[in-house]
């Protein structure tokens, strides 16, 4: 089956603000699905609540627009019941790192084989621009009455600390790189986290497209802007844990954490950390339930002509007086 990009688009009117970074992300998801030729009915996009929550309606696969902060819970339940699905969860930074932070951390511990994309713009857009968990301390974006009084959370570091086994960052206006990162994330065996820097043209007047491009930071000699965004892969950075050793793992975790702290002058994108030596959840389950992947919950026959076919007589025998 040859997949066309247009197959993955719906006709639903997109009401995001003109210039919104979200467009780039939804395009990249559609391109990634087309490139991997995933049959439309074998993919499900789950989304949270907020501007990014509408994502699932624009993609022509199964689409589940869930509740604020809870996208990972729905997505994991579906993936565990039907592991044959390609599951991508999407949500905002407020959704995933504010109200849903507990689920974010718990999901890392499970390492379910799916992808989670955070649309990170540092503001709550749909409620008119309040500070989100990723807005830096002391910044005052357009609609804040006073500068932000909270420290920002570092999504990359939190993902690593929580146990995500693939941690990467993309930029909403670099759709090609973002598409490649989504493909890598989906193909990763385990839980992949993708932090996507997504300028909000309406409410975040600080971390703008121009700011990321370094328009305020002109090289004195060349007179050209010095872009903040750079690609880790261009620096020879190797994110992969190649061998199952504590030393190797510590080294890769540490370098990723150090890189995750870069901000302001230089902002890295690309894959920070990747470890496929940690068993994904389905493998842990298969160790207990050997036929889990070939006969998962969603595939199991439970009745024949309306009568149950499950044999519980062994348990009942043990209860006989």
């Amino acid at each position: 089956m040859v997949s066309n990009l247009s197959d993955y688009k719906t006709e639903v009117h997109n009401d995001w603000c003109p210039g919104c970074g979200d467009f780039g992300i939804v395009n990249a998801i559609q391109m990634a699905l087309a490139e991997m030729e995933i049959p439309r009915h074998k993919a499900a996009i789950f989304s949270g609540v907020g501007c990014s929550g509408k994502t699932s309606h624009f993609i022509n696969t199964y689409g589940v627009h869930t509740l604020h902060g809870r996208v990972l819970t729905f997505a994991q339940g579906a993936k565990l019941a039907n592991p044959g699905m390609t599951v991508v969860a999407a949500g905002g930074d407020g959704d995933g790192l504010g109200i849903g932070a507990g689920h974010f951390v718990a999901a890392g511990r499970r390492n379910v084989d799916m992808t989670y994309i955070i649309f990170n713009n540092a503001v709550y857009g749909l409620t008119k621009g309040q500070a989100s968990p990723t807005l830096k301390l002391g910044l005052k974006t357009k609609s804040l009455p006073e500068p932000n009084v909270n420290q920002s959370v570092n999504p990359i570091a939190l993902a690593i600390a929580s146990g995500f086994t693939f941690v990467a960052r993309g930029y909403a206006y670099d759709v090609r790189q973002l598409k490649d990162l989504i493909v890598a994330a989906v193909k990763h065996r385990g839980l992949a986290f993708l932090d996507v820097l997504q300028p909000c043209p309406t409410y975040n007047d600080i971390n703008t497209r121009d700011w990321f491009a370094g328009m305020d930071n002109i090289d004195e000699i060349t007179k050209k802007p010095l872009p903040r965004i750079y690609k880790l892969e261009d620096t020879g950075y190797d994110p992969v844990v190649h061998i199952d050793s504590t030393m190797e793992e510590n080294e890769k975790l540490t370098q990723a954490l150090i890189k995750s702290n870069e901000w302001d002058a230089k902002i890295p994108t690309g894959i920070f950390y990747k470890n496929e030596l940690i068993a994904p959840y389905d493998q842990r389950i298969s160790d207990r339930i050997p036929n889990y992947l070939e006969n998962p919950p969603a595939s199991q026959e439970i009745s024949n002509n309306g009568k149950p076919i499950t044999n519980i007589s062994k348990i009942l025998d043990s209860l006989e007086v």
């Binding site: 789950f46 589940v64 869930t66 509740l67 809870r70 990972l72 819970t73 729905f74 997505a75 994991q76 339940g77 579906a78 993936k79 565990l80 019941a81 039907n82 699905m85 507990g102 689920h103 718990a106 919950p297 969603a298 199991q300």
Partner: peptide
């Protein structure tokens, strides 16, 4: 999370 997972699983026909 418990009920969220239940809903997700139920959507698969389980």
């Amino acid at each position: 999370s418990a009920i969220g997972m239940v809903i997700g699983a139920a959507l698969t026909g389980t």
